[in-house]
């Protein structure tokens, strides 16, 4: 089954100068597949991921997820779709600094309102435990290390059991051991839960273990 299908995507930046970032990009990703996106810095990986995450709607072409076209949906519909179906880890961690680690993880689920608060809290603790940062749960998010923040962001992305998890260098700040833990978790999710994983990475070792590598060069797909 196709989880994600991208057709003929073109993306331009107009400021500061006209710039064709993504050129005629088309590819498909199967459900449960673990895909790595690679490419040189500035090749357009983050830009592509913002399109896939439904946040950036300013592009040509179309994106389908799980059989439904998301291109052209209204902002509120997209917000709802993101909340329920997409988990996202940004290149820079982007937690809410005023909230505790636990609250940060719980917020998307509290918004979705599919489970009770107790269930959500239980699930959040489970994820934090899995990522080895359970002891950080009561701390304010601005008071933990960069690597810890990155793992909290991953826990937050996973809280609603999304169909697709997207990560922009999700292991960029981690030592090899924690990097391995994160990889194993994502690997397991893809295999056991059928969740689709798309991760941008510069780490060849990480990429080598993925099901498939999509490579970008100057905004064009090369493999």
């Amino acid at each position: 089954m196709t989880a994600l299908s991208v057709k003929q995507i073109n993306k331009y930046f107009y400021k500061p100068v006209d710039f064709h970032v993504l050129k005629d990009i088309s590819f498909e990703v199967e459900k449960g597949e673990f895909v790595a996106i690679m490419g040189k810095s500035g090749s357009g990986k983050s830009t592509l991921l913002y399109l896939l995450s439904t946040m950036d709607t300013d592009y040509e072409g179309s994106i389908c997820m799980n059989g439904s076209t998301i291109t052209g949906l209204k902002p509120d519909q997209l917000a709802r779709y993101r909340n329920e179906h997409i988990g996202f880890v940004f290149q820079f961690h982007y937690l809410l600094p005023e909230f505790t680690v636990l609250d940060n993880v719980m917020l998307p689920a509290l918004k979705l309102k599919k489970k009770s608060k107790e269930e959500i809290e239980h699930e959040a603790i489970r994820l934090l435990n899995l990522l080895d940062i359970k002891d950080q749960a009561p701390k304010v998010a601005s008071k933990i290390s960069g690597g810890q923040q990155q793992r909290v962001a991953l826990a937050r992305a996973l809280i609603n059991s999304p169909d697709i998890v997207m990560g922009d260098e999700p292991t960029g700040n981690l030592d090899s051991q924690n990097s391995q833990i994160v990889f194993d978790i994502l690997r397991e999710l893809a295999r056991d839960e059928g969740q689709t994983i798309i991760a941008v990475t510069h780490d060849d070792e990480f990429a080598a273990k993925c099901d498939r590598i999509i490579e970008l060069e100057d905004g064009e797909l090369v493999s």
């Binding site: 946040m55 779709y81 600094p97 917020l107």
Partner: peptide
């Protein structure tokens, strides 16, 4: 402004 952007990225809409 960053927090608002994060909230929206997580699925909070304009009304929220």
């Amino acid at each position: 402004i960053r927090e608002i952007a994060i909230l929206k990225a997580m699925g909070f809409n304009g009304g929220d």
